[in-house]
Design a protein around this nucleic acid. Structure first.
Lengths: 338, 338
DNA sequence: GCCGCCGATGCATACGTGTGCAAGCCAGAC
DNA sequence: GTCTGGCTTGCACACGTATGCATCGGCGGC
């Protein structure tokens, strides 16, 4: 029913090969005939069959992304950024959600690999070994996870300037007069948590502040709520929280029990998920453009697939930006004296 | 490099046709040989080429979904539910985000249609005419939008029991002693807004309450914030808000200006997006299982594609459930007297 | 004027699968 | 014994495209 390459060829008085080349090897065909062909194709509503093309070339022309959990507001933004950039390049996007099940991820990779040319792995929970295995299957770009440290392991990654973001947060609190600051830590096995924690320790030390690490908790709303008591008992006037989801849990718990915010405790989050601005008080946080991360991941895959670009394994991390809202305030006079 | 159907056939001592049928027409091939074939295929790591299969059959074996904006927490949940159910059936899922641009949707449909067998349109902004056009291209199921009213228009839809949800909300407020209740309306052109509004009017009237429609506003955080003043000036002690996103904006604005919640005003939302539990006060709202909506949409498409099922155009709407949190309270004594 | 080269095009084939048709085989009925 | 019919399998071909190779025409250099 739909027009084929032969229909166009016949109408144009050329062979099917020429029509094919007019689209895939434009420089090989005479400009006049090429223009005639594409005009004719347009009028016939011809579009190349991706199935036939895939069969012949072995490529699908599509990209895939695997995320742990779409319910976590972190990931939809990445997917969104990826999808928009992919559309610019003409790649369809296949999506898979692993439901936070690390054991499901390798299977998803294998399934997805058969339908896409390259894969974005967003915060993958799988092991380093499974990761390199996945990268052997298809070109892979990581988002929000470092590449495995092994020798042959050069899985490219889109990273975030965690240190820079933490520095801005600490500097902001310092400027507001806070001198004893806590860091509410997520899971200690998480690489980005460690990055932020180390940056926090360094930044507070460099500024001559007292930096206290509080706990480690699950990087969830519940984990943040669980940190509330420890945060109050720690001798601090402000905390930097590993991420916004935890910060939301922390704020929720504190305000429910009547703790005055930000008077009693200033709070800074990380990620600037859409929820951050809607909390009460609205969360001061470090913004990272998750959409940009998704878009950059597509750029790198596209460069890899087309053979263009230097394909450096570790380019500059994505910049961060402190967004000041209502959850941080100048330290109170009482606290200043204490 | 990957094993083909011929490799399996040769090893098994049968023809390629038999191997093909062993997978797609199991009842046509002798049980013993079929078992031998699938065991052999397993050991060879053979998996049928979806490209070749698509080329031959015209089907892709994949499903697509188009959403207006992944940043709106409503949609990731639908996508998630769809993705999980689709995986059970073995369908890959292609995702497209229209960035709230109604004019982009038809183009996305056309692009997607070439890569999938059927499409889920989630809250599509396109016109009825474009909708029927899309349904002509591929089997379509709507989520959160009614089918066009025309004669030949039988686009199946997964609908939500808006009326039932509103009734529960009004009943809850009534039980708490509220007698003058407002409905903060979204865009009047939205079908689901109208459904909820009408249900609100009916429910309040049936209960002998005073129901007041407040405004209409954009169904966004900003729209909800914009409704704050009107909600305070309206002579009501409680409001039902069109959806949670608006309710979040309303709560944010009210608490920022120091209005006591829920003391001064009880608030009920709709949708139970993940954000709802994290607001201060935590939002009482009508839960609809968005994941279920996505899953049911897949069920219906699968039934349509496999020719099974009665394929009724309008089955029972999805049930709703009131989730009571902290944004509703018994009406105050002062208000009772007034 | 001839040779060789280059740019443009056609021919043929292969990618891996599904499926209509025919053939073979076997059982049961006459 | 023969015929009919069902079950199982093989043969051949087509799906729509990309691409190596051959062809052809034109043009510059000797």
């Amino acid at each position: 029913m739909p027009a084929t390459i032969r229909d166009v060829a016949e109408k144009a008085g050329v062979s099917a090969s020429t029509v094919s080349r007019a689209f895939t090897r434009p420089e090989m065909v005479d400009t006049a005939t090429r223009l005639r062909i594409i005009a004719l194709a347009e009028s016939l509503g011809y579009e190349p069959s991706s199935a036939a093309r895939s069969l012949k070339t072995g490529r699908t022309g599509a990209l895939g992304i695997i995320v742990p959990d779409l319910s976590n507001p972190f990931f939809p933004d990445v997917v969104r950024g990826m999808q928009h950039r992919a559309r610019e390049y003409g790649y369809p996007v296949l999506l898979a959600d692993s439901a936070e099940d690390p054991s499901a991820e390798p299977a998803l990779v294998r399934t997805l690999a058969r339908n896409v040319d390259a894969i974005v792995l967003c915060s993958p929970r799988m092991s380093d070994a499974e990761l390199t295995e996945a990268a052997r299957l298809r070109p892979v770009v990581l988002v929000n996870r470092e590449a495995p440290a092994g020798p042959a392991a050069t899985v490219p990654a889109v990273t975030i300037d965690n240190a820079g973001g933490i520095q801005q947060a600490v500097r902001h609190l310092h400027a507001l007069g806070h001198r004893r600051i806590g860091f509410v830590s997520g899971t200690r096995t998480s690489r980005s948590n460690e990055d932020r924690l180390v940056a926090f320790t360094d930044a507070t030390a460099a500024a001559g502040l007292v930096g206290t690490v509080i706990g480690s908790y699950q990087p969830t709303v519940e984990g943040g709520a669980a940190a509330a008591d420890d945060a109050l008992l720690a001798d601090v006037t402000a905390v930097v929280v590993y991420n916004d989801v935890m910060a939301a849990g922390l704020i929720g718990r504190l305000s429910r029990v009547g703790v005055e915010l930000p008077g009693r405790l200033s709070i800074v989050g990380f990620d600037d998920i859409s929820l951050a601005a809607l909390l009460t008080p609205a969360l001061t946080t470090v913004r990272i453009s998750l959409e940009l991360a998704g878009a950059v991941a597509v750029d790198r895959l596209h460069a890899h697939l087309t053979g263009a670009g230097p394909d450096v394994a570790r380019p500059a991390p994505l910049p961060t930006e402190l967004v000041v809202r209502d959850s941080t305030a100048a330290v109170s006079a009482a606290d200043l004296r204490g």
